[in-house]
Design a protein around this nucleic acid. Structure first.
Lengths: 298, 298
DNA sequence: ATCATTCTATGAAATTAATTCAACAAAGGC
DNA sequence: GCCTTTGTTGAATTAATTTCATAGAATGAT
């Protein structure tokens, strides 16, 4: 019924003062405008303008349509602008999924500069997924996944962003603190603090304790990295965390990183995203900035 | 670019879940919708939906368009509803022009019930006109004119609404108060209070004093009827007003109406409007209600 | 696996709508 | 009074939308 072009005409006639001038402005003939409005008037059952001599005086309906035009047309125009930005990859929303708890500290360092560089992109971080990080990626709940397990599947692409060593954290006065590396058996009298996730997602179990059929004396779970470190610094247990993270906090707390096993546990963190999104500019940029934020660790 | 029908499609697809169902709801073929959206996508340079199997998942652009649709479409629909009401004369604005100062008191009695009966009509009252009331009517500054001078001109129609007698108001202790009627000479020692308009628009001059070549001792002008009556009640002068108005106030104030001349001055008040508007329902209704509000005067 | 079903995409044809052209009428300026 | 400007209207033209017919792809059931 009322179409965008009708509003366009009403607005332009108001601006220019005549059908003829408005037609010029809209790159149409005056006749086209006359026909278009005549048809609208018939549909609405009311005139939009009163023809007085060769002047068009807006009727009450016309005045209302004009106010409508001034309200709606800018929204159309803004929408096109915005969609254009989305199309060019300059605007969007970036929902980051995290499957690597300690990486949160690292992520914060990436996100700050990223937000500055991409003022049009909204960033959100999610940490819990009903069907795992990969499922969230497939289900469009997130756009990027930060994970140590690049479960390759069709339609997804993964790229490594940084490597680090997973180490044992102990209080600096702890007997193990002086060791160059610890063995699984060393933990059998210790309290181990981990994030509250399945043991199969904890490297200290899958790659250290379980192969040696060892287990710690006690196992506590804590949600946040900060409290975890506070506990270790209070001598209430030991934990397994990235070396760079421990070194970051070692300045402020009496904690020491110790290698897990003779060769240590090396880990790699990947960023995964949907293949389809690989071309999106602000996603590529995030990947690039993530790779650059390696924290000065090998 | 983005047209109303595109928003219509986006909204309907979101509601129905598929192009096919949306097409049914919109009484179009699935093919039409597919073509329409394909064209839009090409113009925008971005997909609106990602085709996943036989499902359509909205992209970021698509989600934005959906929010736009939910915002804009109701406004289109509301606008059509409203314009329909205007077309049926159920809604509009009624700007009343007044060329009869004391009639303001009468008008208030009309407007109250009118507003109740026509909730869709906004009423405004104007009292000053650059080119007179008739000019304001022609110039669309007002829609109805309340006037004692029905200056008939092409394109305008006038209808009488009520008659009244213009009388002299004096303090009840005033020497003239006991007279059945006064002569022009009686005013030559009086202070006459009138509205601040040209003498040619004051009946006390045109139909009473000037024909007898009389004039009052002093002439004061006052804008409002209330203050005018206060002045008379304070014995500070005499004035000329409608009899019904004086009788209305005579309960509260020591004032008395006296006939002007042996036969009195009879006046008639007209409502004028543009011929073109004569069919507008809420205007007709105003005329009818105005005629009914005669204040019980002869 | 196979088949039927249910979607969407697409090209061509048909239909419908928009636009222009041309002629005319009304009003204002000189 | 004549010329210019402006809007209307009907017919012709052009452009668009819509439908039809068909094909492909994914889902679910047998």
């Amino acid at each position: 019924m009322i179409e965008r072009n009708h509003l366009e005409i009403v607005r332009e006639v108001d601006r220019c003062g005549s059908l003829t001038a408005a037609a010029d402005a809209l790159c149409l003939t005056q006749s086209a405008l006359s026909h278009a409005m005549k048809k609208l008037e018939q549909q609405l059952g009311t005139d939009v303008w009163v023809r007085e001599g060769r002047k068009l005086r807006p009727t009450q309906s016309g005045l209302y349509l004009l106010s409508l035009a001034n309200r709606l047309l800018p929204q159309f125009e803004h929408a096109e602008e915005l969609v254009g930005q989305i199309a060019r990859g300059q605007r969007g929303s970036l929902r980051i999924g995290m499957e690597c708890h300690p990486c949160y500290q690292w992520l914060l360092k990436v996100v700050g500069p990223y937000l500055e560089q991409w003022p049009g992109v909204d960033v959100d971080v999610k940490q819990r997924f009903q069907f795992g990080g990969i499922g969230a990626l497939f289900g469009y709940d997130i756009d990027v996944l930060v994970t140590p397990d690049p479960l390759h599947r069709k339609g997804l692409v993964f790229a490594p962003v940084f490597d680090y060593e997973q180490v044992l954290v102990v209080h600096s006065a702890h007997p193990l603190a002086s060791k160059v590396w610890v063995e699984p058996a060393d933990l059998e009298s210790e309290t181990l603090i981990t994030y509250p996730v399945d043991a199969e997602r904890l490297d200290i179990y899958t790659r250290f304790l379980l192969p040696a059929h060892s287990s710690p004396a006690r196992h506590k779970t804590i949600e946040t990295t900060d409290i975890m470190l506070q506990m270790v610094a209070a001598g209430r247990g030991v934990s397994a965390l990235p070396r760079w993270l421990v070194e970051e906090y070692a300045h402020q707390m009496p904690i020491i990183p110790v290698r897990l096993g003779k060769k240590g546990i090396d880990k790699q963190i990947f960023l995964g995203l949907r293949e389809r999104d690989a071309g999106v500019e602000y996603l590529q940029s995030f990947m690039a900035m993530a790779r650059e934020t390696t924290w000065g660790l090998a």
